[in-house]
Simulated assay, not measured.
Amino acid sequence: MAYAAGVHQGSPPDHRRFLADIRTNRSNRAILDAWDALGLPDGWLVAGCLFQTVWNLVSGRAPEDGIKDYDIFYFDAEDLSAAAEARVQARVDGVLGSLGVPIEVKNQARVHLWYEEHFGYPYQTLASSAQGIDRFLVPSTCVGVRPVAGRDEVYAPNGLAILYAGVLTLNPLVPHVQLFRDKAQSYRNRWEWLQVQDTR
Rank of each mutant, 00 (worst) to 15 (best):
D134C: 08
A165C: 09
Y121L: 02
V154W: 11
E153F: 07
A127Y: 01
L160G: 06
Q124F: 08
T125G: 07
R135Y: 04
G94C: 02
D93C: 00
G132S: 14
Q131T: 08
N158Q: 12
A109K: 02
T125W: 02
E117L: 04
Q108D: 08
Q124R: 15
A165F: 07
A127E: 06
T141C: 14
A161C: 03
G97E: 00
L126Q: 07
N158M: 11
R135Q: 05
N158P: 04
E116M: 09
K106E: 10
V145A: 14
L126F: 05
R135K: 06
E117K: 08
K106M: 10
R146C: 10
K106P: 06
L160M: 07
E153V: 15
G159F: 05
R151F: 04
V111H: 00
P122T: 12
L99N: 00
Q108S: 12
A161R: 13
G97F: 00
F119M: 15
R151N: 07
V138P: 07
Y123V: 03
V148D: 01
G94A: 02
V92G: 00
I133D: 15
E116S: 14
L99E: 00
I103V: 12
G100S: 05
P139Q: 10
D152L: 14
D93I: 02
G159C: 09
P157R: 12
L113M: 11
G132L: 15
V145H: 08
L137Y: 07
W114L: 03
K106C: 11
G132Q: 13
A130M: 13
G100V: 07
